[in-house]
Nucleic acid binder design. Structure first.
Lengths: 233, 233
DNA sequence: ATGCTTAGTGTTACAAATACACTTTATATT
DNA sequence: AATATAAAGTGTATTTGTAACACTAAGCAT
């Protein structure tokens, strides 16, 4: 039997960082934690931590988000990997960044289940504090990512409450795209997608004419994105 | 002076893998190497290797591609990071995948400058061999990436020789999109982009009517992609 | 009853995408 | 020289989507 050369065993460290978008009180927000450990103790940071040895990246992302914020069952998507040599003071740590857009029911409490984070809070993206590591850069790239995504997929509803008005939806688009949109054209386009269901219900508690409520039809939405774009023939 | 707790020093290993697309003899190809080292010695693989300690990911990608194939100054873009627990037999190795589309002048010789790769060759994507590690999966994701990209950005010219005919361009689109396109509409659309320059030259050596040659105008191309998409107002 | 504030609505103009088939031209063959 | 061949090259009508644009309707507060 031929002896194979002995190979060194690799034992690596890398991390996950999460950019979680929410929409509340007419503002786009992201989740930040206050770090309770070194390095960057007491700094604001994206929820992020080291991946464990026997964990795939996707699984790690879910676990880490849960442990640092208490949020569960959030579908996140990987969007970029940051690997500058000096991005981590303890050595070479590459971090894989994930993003998600979620509905922030007001009720969902943020409660870190580990002491790594002192607390987790929703922070308006307009007014972010200085962040630990290269997290400002990571956030910026994540923001560009959802801006692009929303331009070709009507995914904004992930951020809205179950029932919403068309004006709320439009405001959300305007914030993410950083542009003002024409009301009539916006409504026409959205309704044309055929993924909104008009409800027999109206907004309540407003001191003016109440708007109709809508909800998204996820089945139709899924069907919509089976057909592909451009150059169909 | 307050003593900070001593932090462990991280010392990690991760890799880069490159999916390099070329177009030759009417076929879409990618670059593969034949591995000359364990693990997966003698297997076909994507050009890929470990990142060095003091190297950013982008720089590592360039170096690794060069060392394994002899190709230089190729602009690559990161597209996904693969981190399944068992993807590498020597332990936990996360790999950051890059892609590029390049012009394959016929002349550019492929010559690994390290013995890690025995050789590097262009392989038709239609007929890839079994690949080392999870490289088949990486390739598949890279292919989807360029398919999507080409659908909204006329980047296909990266793959073509300096001078090309519209029919060649169309064939390339058809191969990447896996669809047949209408000749008149295709031409109209391409010419409307305003990034093609008609030359005073014709195809040579064909046994039928020679087609006009075109080349891409990179200046106009760059300008085209400063203006953004969708929902402009 | 009046005022205020937002909801809700339609048309026209322009641009882009699609469907579709014949003529022209360079070369090769006889 | 005549003919065959193979791909180049070209235009129009239809449909679809995008863009610009301003007033009336409804509900609540006073």
């Amino acid at each position: 039997m031929i002896l194979e050369p002995l190979l060194p065993k690799f034992d690596s460290v890398f991390s996950i960082d999460c950019v979680i978008f929410g929409f509340d009180e007419g503002e786009l927000k992201i989740l930040l934690i206050e770090r309770n450990i070194q390095p960057f103790k007491d700094w604001w940071a994206l929820p992020g931590y080291l991946v464990e040895e026997n964990e795939s990246l996707d699984v790690a992302a879910e676990r880490i988000l849960y442990e640092l914020t208490g949020l569960r069952d959030i579908f996140m998507e990987q969007f970029y990997t940051f690997g500058d040599v000096d991005r981590h003071p303890q050595g070479r740590v590459v971090t894989v960044a994930y993003y998600a857009m979620i509905r922030l029911n007001g009720t969902k409490e943020l409660k870190p289940v580990t002491s790594i984070a002192r607390k987790a809070v929703w922070y308006p993206v307009k007014d972010l504090p200085k962040l630990a590591f290269d997290h400002s850069k990571i956030f910026a790239k994540g923001f560009i990512k959802i801006r692009n995504k929303i331009s070709y997929q009507p995914i904004a509803f992930e951020l809205l409450p179950e029932k919403f008005t068309l004006t709320q939806l439009q405001h959300l688009y305007e914030i993410i795209l950083n542009a003002t949109l024409d009301k009539r054209n916006f409504r026409k386009k959205m309704l044309n997608y055929g993924i909104l269901k008009e409800l027999d219900e109206k907004q309540k508690g407003v001191s003016y004419r109440a708007a109709k409520l809508y909800k998204f039809d996820r089945r139709k939405y899924a069907r919509l994105f089976q057909k592909e774009l451009s150059f169909n023939k």
